[in-house]
C-alpha cells in the first residue's frame, strides 16, 4: 500500500513479514532547495502509479518518528539534498556501503537523523537490507517554499532515477498520463 506524506495507519501490515521498499523524501520545505527530497517524492507520487510492495513517505526533517517506517525494509531509497562539494545541481547516487560512510562525513543536511536511525537499527538488528541515496547538490538554502530554478529543473531527473531503481527492484511503475 502506498501513501504520501507519511505512514498510513495500516494496522494490518504489522502482522505480515515483508516490509517491502520505502522511498523516503527528506528535507525542510521552508528552506528552498533543502526540501528537494520532499518535492521529488511528491512528484513521484503525483506522476506515477506504483505497484505493490512500495511505500512513499515525505519524512520532512524527522528523526526517531521515522524509525518504524525504516526498520526491516527490503530496500530503502532516500531522496535528499546532499553536500559533497560538487557544483549545485549535481545528482549523486550512493549505494549500500557508501551510505553510512557518506553520512558519517556529515554532508547531508539531514544525515544526522538518518545516520542516527541507521545506527539504532543496527543495534536492534532491523537495518534495511539495502540502501540507495538519490541526492542533489542544492543551490539556495534561503527561507522560502520555492525550489531554485536550477534545482527545480533537476526534480525530474531525481524522480526518473528513483523510478529506475524501483523497476530494478521488480516494482511495477507506470506513468500516469496527464
Amino acid at each position: 500500500m502506498q501513501s504520501l506524506a507519511g505512514t498510513s495507519p495500516d494496522i494490518d501490515r504489522e502482522a505480515t513479514g515483508s516490509r517491502g521498499v520505502l522511498v523516503l523524501g527528506l528535507g525542510n520545505i521552508l528552506l528552498q532547495d533543502e526540501g528537494v527530497g520532499v518535492r521529488a517524492v511528491e512528484a513521484l507520487y503525483r506522476d506515477y502509479r506504483l505497484g505493490e510492495g512500495v511505500d512513499v513517505i515525505d519524512g520532512g526533517t524527522s528523526g526517531m518518528a521515522l524509525l518504524d517506517d525504516i526498520r526491516n525494509r527490503d530496500h530503502l531509497i532516500v531522496v535528499d539534498a546532499v553536500k559533497t562539494g560538487r557544483p549545485p545541481g549535481s545528482v549523486v547516487i550512493l549505494v549500500d556501503d557508501e551510505v553510512p560512510a557518506f553520512f558519517q562525513s556529515k554532508v547531508s543536511p539531514h544525515q544526522l537523523a538518518l545516520s542516527d536511525l541507521l545506527a539504532v537499527l543496527k543495534l536492534t538488528g532491523e537495518q534495511p537490507a539495502s540502501i540507495t541515496v538519490v541526492g542533489v547538490e542544492p543551490q539556495s538554502l534561503d527561507i522560502g517554499l520555492e525550489l531554485s530554478e536550477l534545482i527545480a529543473a533537476r526534480v525530474e531527473t531525481l524522480v526518473n532515477s528513483v523510478v529506475e531503481q524501483l523497476r530494478l527492484l521488480g516494482i511495477a511503475v507506470e506513468a500516469v498520463s496527464a
Binding site: 507519511g6 495507519p9 519524512g59 521515522l66 524509525l67 518504524d68
Partner: peptide, 17 residues
Amino acid sequence: QRRANKIVTILGSKTPH
C-alpha cells in the same frame, strides 16, 4: 517510543506530519 508514535499515526492519519 515507537508504540507511542503509533497512536499519533493512527489518529493523525500520517506521521511524521
